[in-house]
Design a protein around this nucleic acid. Structure first.
Lengths: 193, 193
DNA sequence: GCTGCCCATTGACCTAAGTCACAAAATGAG
DNA sequence: CTCATTTTGTGACTTAGGTCAATGGGCAGC
């Protein structure tokens, strides 16, 4: 069942019985194996993905061939590429599972219907966007005003368990530093204790 | 009149005659002098601001007392602090005019009414949030994957006129570099030509 | 036409983080 | 259990960009 989705939506808006039926109608559950790349650079993203279980990463490969991780998506989060999904342009991102995962997917046309038909969904989506924008702004400020150690400590506070689930070099990429730097940050922190 | 607001909304959704009347009813025009700080750290942001003319900056002051500019707002843009406005929490930001400006303001309760009563407005706001989130994600990736020269060149492409209107040290802050670095980047670029 | 102030430039030096290269763990497949 | 692959740790060195301090230019107010 799609309990997690309902629960997450309820954090923002009220849900009636018929709303739940509508969601059940539109969303499809799908299992995805660890290591699968569900979208890559050049693709047009035609589905939205709600993570039901497992873990995803979204990353870009720059001109020098270096990966930069934009997002990890844990259960209850959305993943994909909003820009490509909305506009139909091709994406610059790669979206990949880091663990065996389950997602709820909805295709673009159904998504648009849902937004049109279901005010509660529009409202939920809007509030989610607001939160997403605020969070991304904060990350941008962190990128500009904070050194490597503080970025790492801040991540530990906000996602204490991510370290257990993701290799360090991906954490480093997410934080915008080299894996060597993260390794040294960790050593310094453990020496201090 | 509020033509610019109508025009910007029309970029995303259709507007009927009665919608325009509704907007006229809710929004108030206000002139703000150059150099005025309309919100500062600790305030609760109680209005949304649509820039009709002039120029704003939104910045933060970090623990070391250094300013970091998050946004310049040109005519047709919104400014303020979304997080504080939505949640009623106090803001970490300073919002300041860089030129004599005019804004359309709307207070929180009216904003909420508008979202409730006017589907077109909800839709407009949603699409604006989507664009904002995409743009901020791109800036974050740029911060992590691009050197000082490329960041500057990219800004020149996207806002060719901003340089004429804003002191260089603010551009540097917006780009996440020191004013000295920006100065050297500019010298190198002019030497190359 | 002065006087001050703000801003940009420049040089000298410093430092955080990146890069490279290699070694040591850890993980996982058979 | 073993071998291969992935991931992490470390040292030596490089580098982009930051910091500090001094200089000079532009322009507003008088």
């Amino acid at each position: 069942m799609n309990d997690l989705l309902f629960q997450k939506i309820k954090e923002y808006v009220e849900l009636q019985e018929e709303d739940i039926e509508l969601l059940d109608h539109y969303f499809e559950c799908k299992a995805i194996q660890k290591g699968e790349v569900i979208y890559q650079e050049g693709d047009v993203v035609k589905n939205a993905f709600f993570v039901k279980s497992g873990l995803f990463r979204t990353y870009i490969i720059d001109e020098q061939g270096v990966e930069h991780i934009l997002q990890f998506a844990l259960p209850g989060w959305w993943t994909g590429d909003l820009g490509s999904f909305i506009s139909g342009s091709s994406t610059k991102f790669f979206v990949e599972t880091l663990e065996d995962s389950e997602v709820l997917t909805i295709k673009k046309s159904d998504w648009d219907n849902l937004l049109k038909e279901a005010p509660f969904y529009l409202d939920y989506h809007r509030k989610l966007l607001e939160q997403g924008l605020i969070a991304t702004q904060n990350r941008l400020l962190e990128a500009y005003s904070t050194d490597a150690t503080k970025k790492y400590l801040h991540l530990l506070e906000t996602f204490p368990d991510i370290l257990q689930r993701v290799p360090q070099y991906m954490i480093a990429s997410y934080l915008g530093m080299s894996r060597e730097t993260l390794s040294r940050v960790r050593r310094q922190l453990s020496n201090k204790k």
